[in-house]
Structure formats: structure tokens, C-alpha cells
Design a protein around this nucleic acid. Structure first.
Lengths: 225, 225
DNA sequence: GCAGGCAATCTTGTATGGTAGTATGGTATT
DNA sequence: AATACCATACTACCATACAAGATTGCCTGC
């Protein structure tokens, strides 16, 4: 059996991961200049690995490379947001359909544990834990659907939205609503009611709209359109 | 208004596009070694732009970079195929739902023209034209759904599958079946019958399965799993 | 005073040299 | 004879140097 994984990280990989982290967490705000030379100096390496990292980040739209001019932290695009939400919704609906068909009560305890933990996180207003548990919940659904890869796809679309929402603090009331959404989803799932689950999911995923609109209004300078 | 697009292509962009084309068309077979130096010599440029192109291709899984060892044209992965098909199906189903709601007869002529052209392509066994017209048909549906971006997403997943199918010649009979699928889809769409359209789409997208299985069986050396 | 152009200085893009990791084939040792 | 070890040749990776496009501001000419 392959024990694998030592997978030596290259310098470019490290820069990529670090920059990505700082961009996603908004330590680096959209529009910030990221010249190759500056970043290279900051990390104490040459421009080449930095350049490679920026190229990869560019393919995720996390940085905008203006040829011969400048490289900046990527601004948000409403069109792209819409596209990401559309894809995420589509994929997760398909997940729910499969999950409904494949449902078995052996999955129930995992969901129960996850929901319990979510309720605790809400009570303690631990937004970071909640974020993790929310992802776990959606990952569980993908497992039930026998499509674990789908969660990776969902996550890649979700991450683009998450960066925006990092501009807005979540309060306990909002989180409580989301937990109730999760409970409803689980109920439909356990009843193998795909139609009901789909409707519940559409509501669940639409709650983010007002947050996005608020952020867009309050931080227009971080947006392209 | 910006006439845009002159967007000067960098050397790296050219190498990227050219390699991508050759890989997608199977002029470069999966597993073929692609050392930076060789490719650079072939194109008469230095290794750096080649390296950047290969990095980007790697992020699309079109090449596999084995650190310090070798870079090869990417082999197929059944897991990845499954994931791509899943996402494409999910997105296109969501497209159909929206398209059903937004349907108006003003779209009918465009579809009619496209289908006519498809029938001609089948009659003339012009597989290349058919491929283009097939994409146009699916793009039209995304337009009706008022989600043109969705076609881009569909295309990115579809392209991974297309490379595999390039290993198998399409005959006229298969194409004729696909045209009939398109006709059925259009009928359901025009009737604003989302459920029927979804069922028709699932059938349409499942036809590729036997092609993939055949290719997998006949060309196991091009696969990872 | 104003406009056009030129030069300095940013930026990213490309080329080349050198380094370190990996595999392979030969050799010596058990 | 089989195995462990070492030298060599290959690779991707990183650093440095150079080139070229883009912007800014000054400076000259009108």
C-alpha cells in the first residue's frame, strides 16, 4: 500500500498557499497591488516562484494580472458571483436527489452529531466553528449521494462567495436560521422527499442574497460591476 | 466602448494555447513526456514561458507534473470523468428549469435553424460541424435560461470528456440519435415542461457512457484507474 | 499658457545559468 | 549470484540578468 503524501512542497506552492490564505481572509483587500518584486522581497525568494503562484491565483480569479502594468488582488464581480451561486445550487440539488434515493438510517447519527455541534456553536456564537460544521453538513450530504467529489466542486464555488461574506459579520440570529434550514433539509432527506429537499435548499442558498447586496452597497470599491 | 481584445498574447499564452490544442486533439497522446527543455527547443523559446504554460495546463489536469522527475501529458481518470459528467448534468438540468420558465416563441427560429443545420451535418457525415452545432444548441438553452455563463461552465466540464471521445469515431447513426434527443429536448422546452426536459436530458447525457466504457477498455494505458 | 512629445522609471515578460532531487546502470562487496 | 552502493545523467526548480511594454511627469516648442 502507498503511504504516499510526503509530496515535498515547492517554494511556489508555499507562496501560493500563503497568498491565497491572506486573500481569502481579506488580510489582503481587493485592489491591493501585488507586484512580483515586493512579494518576492517579503518572502525572501526570487520573482519566479512568486510569478508562478500569481499565475495560478489568476486562474482562480483571486488576482488580476494587468500585463506589463500591475498585478492586484482580485475584485469581486457580480456576474461571477451569480455564476458561482448558480453552479453551486445546481450541483447541490443534484446531490440532494441522489442522496434522497440512497438514504439509509445508518447516516442519521452523523447528521445528528453535526447538527448538535452546530446548535452549540450558535449558542456560543462561535462563527468559526459554525463555518466548519456547515461545510461538514454539506459534505455529509455529498457522501450520502455517493458523490464525495461533488463537495469539492461545491467548495470551489462556495469559496468565492465566502470571501465576500468575510466582509460582513454573521450574528447568532442568522446562524440560527441556517441551522433550522439544515434541520429541514435533513427531514426531507430522511423522508426521501427529493422535491421538498430541493425547495428547502433553494431557500437555504438564497439567504445569502441580502448579505451580498449589503456588502455590494457598502463596499462598491471592491467590485468590478 | 472598448473594442478590446487586442490583448497582446504573451509567449507563454501562445505555448499554452498550442499545447492545449495538441493535447485536446490527441496529437499528443496521454503519457507522452513533455520536458521543459524539449518543448522550449521545439518552439524556439526559453524554458520559462513553457514552464508557465505547463503549470496552467496542470491546473486543468491536462498535464501531470512529477516534481524533479518528469512532466507528461495527463492521463484520464475515471473518477474525474464521473465528476465532470456529474457537474455538467447538474448545471444543465438547472439551465433547463430556468429555460422552461423563461421560454418564449421568439427563441423558436434560432433552435429550428440550429436543428436544421444539425440534420444537414448528419446527412453529410460532417462530424466536425456537428460538434460545433451541438455546442451551439446547448449554448442557446443557456441563453434562454438567461444564464449564458452556465454554458461556459458546461463547456469546461464537457471538454474533459471530449478529449476522451476523440479516441472514438462518431458514426452517422449515433449523431442521428443525438439530433433526435435535441428535438425531444426542444419539444419539452417549448411546452415549458421542465420535468420532461430533465428526463430527456438525463437520457441524452447518458448516451456517452458506452463510448467511454469502450474507450476505457480499448485504451487502458491512457487511464489512471 | 498650452499641447505634444520625450525620457525616466515603474511594471511584467523572457532568457540563461546553476542547484537539488530522482532514477538508472554499473561496480564492488558479501 | 544476488544485493547494496555509488556515479552519472536526467528532470523540474530557483535565482539572476536582461528586455520590452506602460505610465508618469517634466520639458521643450509653438
Amino acid at each position: 500500500m502507498a503511504y504516499s503524501i510526503p509530496t515535498r512542497q515547492s517554494t511556489a506552492d508555499i507562496i501560493f498557499a500563503q497568498l491565497r490564505k491572506e486573500i481569502m481572509s481579506l488580510d489582503l483587500l481587493p485592489g491591493t497591488k501585488l507586484s512580483e518584486a515586493e512579494v518576492a522581497a517579503k518572502f525572501g525568494v526570487s520573482r519566479q516562484p512568486v510569478r508562478e503562484a500569481l499565475n495560478l491565483l489568476s486562474s482562480e480569479s483571486l488576482v488580476e494580472i494587468q500585463p506589463q502594468k500591475a498585478t492586484r488582488v482580485g475584485r469581486f464581480s457580480m456576474r461571477r458571483i451569480e455564476a458561482a451561486r448558480f453552479a453551486r445550487r445546481a450541483i447541490e440539488i443534484e446531490v440532494l436527489k441522489n442522496a434522497s434515493e440512497n438514504w439509509s438510517d445508518v447516516y442519521a447519527p452523523s447528521f445528528a452529531r453535526c447538527l448538535d455541534a452546530q446548535r452549540r456553536a450558535v449558542a456560543e456564537q462561535d462563527t468559526h466553528s459554525f463555518q466548519t460544521l456547515d461545510e461538514e453538513f454539506h459534505a455529509l450530504m455529498a457522501d450520502v449521494a455517493k458523490a464525495p467529489f461533488a463537495f469539492q466542486q461545491i467548495k470551489s464555488h462556495k469559496s468565492y462567495i465566502d470571501r465576500i461574506c468575510a466582509l460582513s459579520l454573521k450574528d447568532a440570529a442568522e446562524m440560527a436560521v441556517l441551522v433550522r434550514d439544515h434541520e429541514a433539509l435533513l427531514t426531507h432527506l430522511a423522508a426521501q422527499d427529493a422535491t421538498g429537499a430541493e425547495a428547502a435548499l433553494r431557500i437555504h442558498l438564497s439567504r445569502i442574497e441580502k448579505t451580498i447586496a449589503a456588502v455590494h452597497h457598502a463596499n462598491a470599491e471592491y467590485f468590478n460591476d
